[in-house]
Measured scan of single mutants.
Amino acid sequence: GLMCLEHEDEKVNMYCVTDDQLICALCKLVGRHRDHQVAALSE
């Protein structure tokens, strides 16, 4: 899978609806997407 741009060791596994961007779990937990609307990726 694709790796996160901000956290190079994390794979992107969710999608930020607010930013129209693929993000990883760390982005959602501690990153700038924590208050955004996110959706899980169905692979």
Rank of each mutant, 00 (worst) to 15 (best):
C24D: 00
Q37N: 06
H33W: 00
V38Q: 07
K11L: 06
V30W: 04
D20P: 01
Y15E: 10
D35K: 08
V12D: 15
L2T: 15
R32E: 13
M3T: 06
M3A: 09
V17W: 06
R34T: 08
E43T: 05
Q21W: 01
S42G: 12
L22M: 10
L29Y: 08
V12C: 05
R34Q: 12
V38R: 05
E6P: 00
C16Y: 01
R32C: 09
G1K: 12
C27K: 03
S42M: 04
M14F: 02
H36Q: 04
A25K: 10
L22W: 11
M14A: 11
D20W: 01
K28N: 09
S42L: 03
R32V: 06
L41W: 10
V30F: 03
D35P: 04
V17P: 13
H33D: 01
L2C: 14
E10F: 07
C16G: 04
V12K: 15
V38E: 05
Q21H: 14
H36D: 00
I23G: 06
M14N: 09
L41F: 07
L41K: 13
D9I: 11
Q21R: 11
R32N: 15
D35Q: 11
H33G: 02
M14R: 11
N13C: 07
Q21I: 07
D20E: 06
E10Y: 05
V38T: 05
I23E: 05
C16M: 01
E6Y: 04
H36L: 01
L22E: 15
L26S: 14
L29A: 13
D35V: 04
K11G: 06
H33V: 00
C16E: 06
L29P: 12
D19S: 03
V17A: 14
E8H: 11
H33N: 03
A40S: 12
C27G: 01
S42Y: 03
R34A: 14
A40T: 11
E8V: 12
V30S: 13
V38C: 12
T18Y: 02
L5M: 04
Q37G: 07
A25M: 05
L22V: 09
L26H: 15
Y15D: 11
N13E: 08
R34G: 11
L41P: 15
L5H: 09
C24N: 01
E43V: 02
H36A: 02
H7W: 00
K28W: 07
K11M: 12
C16N: 06
E8C: 13
V38M: 06
E43W: 06
C27E: 01
S42H: 12
L5V: 06
V30G: 13
G1S: 06
G1L: 01
S42K: 13
L2R: 14
S42Q: 09
E10C: 09
D9F: 14
E10S: 08
V12M: 09
K28G: 10
C16K: 04
M14V: 03
L29W: 05
V17T: 09
N13Q: 10
L26G: 13
V17G: 12
A25P: 07
D20H: 08
K11E: 11
R32H: 07
C16S: 07
L29F: 04
E43H: 06
Q21Y: 06
E10R: 09
A40R: 10
V12P: 02
C16L: 00
L29S: 15
D9Q: 13
R32K: 13
C16A: 02
E10P: 02
L29I: 06
D20K: 10
Q21L: 07
I23L: 10
A25F: 05
H36G: 02
E8K: 14
